[in-house]
């Protein structure tokens, strides 16, 4: 009989800029090695996953990372007392740092996770990407951190218009001239602070890889995908699993060199000479992970087994010729449910 495992999952915001939570849950529910029951962990009362009772047993609101890890730990302790969680899979970018910090404490309480180390988390930050590329011998677009538009003058001979203007944590905009750089600089720095990262604009097509590293340099899973349809805000609305060996080699190289621990998503650009450039590394499961599940690599299941310290075998193959097409869908919800999560923080 399959063991019963209770798993807390965040990122239930399955909206047009989706959090990965709901896709992760679908993978967990299809796991063959255990029978999952799901506890949703939400920040806002309108996250759709809260109301999906066929896949989420119960949801608890948790405090934003800005409240500090002490408060988060206090809330998780309360939830754990009621639910006896075995595993938590955090999926929300801004919370990863806090969960990585809390990993040893949660472990002592009996809640298991399989996260990147703090060093891995910080090394791959956007501001550190040039260093990262150099250290691990991975092609990255040229980029510089600037603290004012005037700073750009020092680097202007190294760049050609257009350039990509990026925030420390989020946001990326393309500037075709200095005026646009100024506008984007002001807007993004007002929201995310300094520095602003300016990056060489790479023409080409976008590829993503999701996978799992075991923390010792071995690849346990890797599925490359080419985005087929991209929304106005740059999210994949459709994508196809591909078997590009260059992409897989690059992924193995990345995992081997960094000894990556946990799930990740690589965002890459392939230029017309067929060369791949690494644009970003997300230290978590991506929202399109259900494609990986669909082609035979159940990444959420792997993460749970790794968190629990179970033996896992690398998954090296997948079914080619599968694609995902995302769709949106309206649920009808009674206001009483919204009332309950809004006033008690539980549903």
């Amino acid at each position: 009989m399959r063991p019963k495992i209770k798993i807390g999952v965040t990122g239930l915001n399955a909206i047009d800029n989706p959090g990965p939570g709901v896709a992760v849950i679908r993978g967990l529910l299809e796991a063959s090695s255990f029978e999952a029951s799901i506890i949703g962990l939400a920040y806002e009362s309108l996250e759709p996953g809260i109301y999906m009772h066929d896949i989420v047993d119960r949801t608890y609101q948790i405090p934003y990372p800005t409240s500090g890890t002490d408060l988060l730990l206090e809330r998780l302790t309360y939830i754990h007392e009621k639910e006896s969680l075995d595993v938590i899979i955090p999926n929300f970018d801004a919370e990863l740092f806090s969960f990585i910090k809390l990993e040893p404490k949660l472990k002592k309480m009996g809640i298991n996770m399989f996260m990147p180390t703090l060093d891995q988390f910080e090394e791959r930050l956007k501001v550190n990407l040039p260093k990262f590329g150099k250290k691990y011998n991975i092609n990255v677009p040229k980029s510089e951190s600037i603290y004012s538009v005037a700073d750009f003058r020092k680097h202007k001979d190294d760049f050609e218009w257009p350039i990509v203007v990026k925030g420390k944590h989020y946001d990326a905009k393309i500037a075709y001239n200095k005026d646009q750089l100024q506008t984007h600089f002001n807007k993004i720095s007002a929201k995310w602070g300094l520095p602003i990262i300016i990056q060489e604009f790479k023409h080409g097509s976008e590829f993503n890889v999701t996978g799992v590293g075991d923390g010792n340099g071995n690849t346990l899973s890797a599925v490359p995908m080419r985005k087929q349809y991209i929304t106005e805000i740059g999210k994949a609305w459709g994508g196809i699993a591909i078997t590009d060996s260059k992409l897989l080699d690059l992924t193995h190289h990345f995992i081997k060199e960094t000894k990556w621990r946990g799930a990740f998503e690589l965002e890459l650009m392939k230029n017309k000479d067929g060369k791949f450039y690494l644009l970003e590394i997300n230290p978590r499961i991506p929202a399109w992970v259900y494609l990986a599940v669909g082609v035979g690599q159940n990444i959420p299941e792997l993460i749970v087994n790794l968190a629990l310290g179970n033996e896992v075998e690398p998954i090296t193959t997948f079914k080619a010729g599968k694609m995902f097409i995302r769709y949106s869908w309206e649920m009808i919800v009674d206001i009483e449910e919204f009332e309950k999560i809004s006033t008690t923080g539980e549903l």
Partner: peptide, 12 residues
């Protein structure tokens, strides 16, 4: 529970 719903405006 202190939840107030205004059905005219849809605000809560």
């Amino acid at each position: 529970s202190g939840f107030v719903f205004n059905p005219t405006t849809g605000e809560s």
